[in-house]
Nucleic acid binder design. Structure first.
Lengths: 237, 237
DNA sequence: ACAGTCAGTTAACAATTAGATAATAATGCA
DNA sequence: TGCATTATTATCTAATTGTTAACTGACTGT
């Protein structure tokens, strides 16, 4: 069997960031899509609140742009629901709104949005805000060497070292350990690992993750990946 | 080849909310069902007051919509009866009524309903009210770490610690203690525990809960789960 | 005091889940 | 092109987890 569309979309390097846009107006959706794709982002869309939630859980995008006024759960609701789940605690969220009044803006940010764009949308503003948001996060998060205990993970040099000894990992192996180590202690569901490391179109068998975990454990020599049976894996020293 | 995309019906994660609707008019029942299912909720129905109570005790839904005028116990009665039980203290209840007069509304809210919708029903109003109600609750619930006395339960790290000492629990064990600890002091009926932790389709024997409770007690070392004979269990330090 | 109910205990078993390993496929590179 | 590396799958096995059954003791109400 063979349906490997094998497409890369890993968050770590300069690979295309995934953006999910939810709005009920197809025109707006298309304007945004066009402008963001032109910027090199990978864009997905949803036309209402529920679809947004569904797709978010499927894709684990880097950024979600939510229209406030939508059928089947409005933007604020979607944001609140997603934020209750650990997996979306750090996902960037931008609200899109026709109401430019102060009060709704405040409410939006209280709900846990990272930014706010009011309609009518200027493509320029949109793009620069999105870029700014990524810059803000990327600058402190990505590219930076993770140092947990005696393990250092350097995504720039693509290198992992344990007690100063460099270990060479294959790409998938590296991406796996990088993901887990990015939030030490936090359990990543198998599902989540799949979409983050393998991408959302790729379908791989059940044992694939295990094999990679095994290889990482083997190569690193130390036991830093803990299995949580029936749930997932976590990085822990 | 097998592609079991690990199903996660873990209570902590986003599971479809269960709604029970009770009305004697099949048409109304269907209109509501249609609109709420479209919203992504899981809908169950009852055609009179007694059936409503019966199903409520079976399902422990997140929200119950009660018509006021029903055969075999009207909505207000059903609400009152349910509210006397701890298990339904926090269940959301909405009344449905043809009488739009003030007095009956006040009586309804006094009985402990959370909201009120008057017939004829506008699907839009219905849906937005329901969403609003859930928004109110969901936002404060969140998958956050529970801290009760010297016990910490962290669903993100899937970890329970007693006096700082980490204890490793299996999935079901964790879900059990998480449920009980989510409302310390409140008694959970065996039935309730079953539907919340095991799901409402699953049928397991009588002793299953006991065994899990025992294991949790054993692993935690301290006695924080109190048995209420003939009723259920509660978390208590 | 006695049946009856109910939960605690334990061990056995069944089912699920991940680890190990080897084989095969895909990919990248010289 | 051919070789080496990496990724995925297929099996088999080991371990853990979940469930059941059978027995025991405690409490309840008559």
């Amino acid at each position: 069997m063979k349906l490997t569309l094998c497409k890369q979309n890993v968050t770590m390097e300069g690979k295309a960031k995934q953006i999910l846009i939810a709005d009920d107006e197809p025109d707006i959706l298309e304007i945004i899509r066009y402008n963001l794709e032109k910027e090199g982002y990978e864009v997905h869309t949803a036309k209402d609140g529920n679809e947004a939630i569904e797709k978010a859980k499927q894709l684990y995008p880097d950024l979600i742009i939510l229209d406030i006024m939508m059928p089947r759960k409005n933007g604020v609701e979607v944001c609140q629901i997603l934020r209750t789940q650990p997996s979306f605690q750090d996902t960037l969220i931008i609200f899109l709104t026709a109401m430019s009044d102060e009060s709704s803006q405040i409410k939006g940010l209280e709900t846990g949005a990272d930014d706010y764009i009011s309609k009518p949308i200027s493509p320029k503003v949109l793009v620069s805000r999105v870029n700014a948001l990524f810059r803000r996060v990327t600058s402190k998060e990505a590219g930076k060497t993770l140092q947990i205990g005696n393990i250092a993970i350097d995504p720039v040099k693509f290198l992992v070292s344990v007690d100063g000894n460099e270990v060479i990992l294959a790409k998938k192996e590296f991406e796996l350990i990088y993901l887990l180590a990015s939030k030490p202690g936090r359990v990543f569901l198998r599902n989540e690992i799949l979409t983050q490391v393998w991408g959302n179109e790729v379908i791989v068998g059940d044992r694939t993750i295990d094999v990679h975990v095994r290889k990482v454990r083997q190569k690193l020599g130390i036991d830093c990946i803990t299995t949580v049976k029936g749930v997932g894996y976590k990085f822990e020293i």
